[in-house]
Amino acid sequence: MTDSRHLEIPGDEGPDMTAAELALGVLDGDERAHAMRRVLSEPGFARAVEQWRGYLSQLFDLWPALAAPDIFPRIERSIDRLSGATTVVHAQPRGSRLWPSLAALSSIAAVGLLMILLLRPIPLPTVPEPRQNVPVTAPQPTLVASLEPDTKALPMTVVYDQGSGTIRLTQSTLARADRSAQLWVIPADGTPRSLGLLQDRGGTALTLSPILRRHLAAGATLAVSIEPLGGSKTGLPTGPVVATGALAPV
């Protein structure tokens, strides 16, 4: 890192301070996507981002407090609903009735990905290089989602590379040993399509068929349901939905 300290970027836009810029939150679009990929692939860079995050957090001291309205009762009601909702899902596993509400849920659970990446860089499984000839067109953005579990488990990070059609998820511990956790996409038409089963141990990497790839766009909802071993036999989710999130460009 020391050798890049005085590195000037062409165009005289100043030295390379990408780690600091990501921690500060000033990057967007391609620059942010590129920086996020570096967090996943370069441990030194990830450490630098975390160090900057630590430095900058000293600024929280300066943030003026402001008397908050007492919304604690509302928060408690939501927590009750959270655990209540899970019971309802278990008692009435008619998956299809759950889907319309998912899009709303996942938009509320906005992508907290940056925080997840910064607070705890999570190793993602590597994907074998695609062997087929993928036509080279304009670079397509990487999409990400943070799947928020209904339980207190940690959110899962999902990274979808539109170029190669591979989707990678961090470790999941959602399914018991006698069950399978199945990943679905719910595109704009509202009909869930299976993307595959999650590994019961470690992260998951799936290479999607060209037909499935068409359904993975920014705004599409991802969901994980708990199914019998080997996955749903009906082609639609049958078990409780335990995590959801929306795809967004990084």
């Binding site: 836009e13 100043g14 030295p15 301070m17 810029e21 500060l24 000033v26």
Partner: peptide, 9 residues
């Protein structure tokens, strides 16, 4: 960008 980067450096 230049201002901020120089400042951060």
């Amino acid at each position: 960008k230049s201002w901020v980067r120089r400042g951060l450096a």
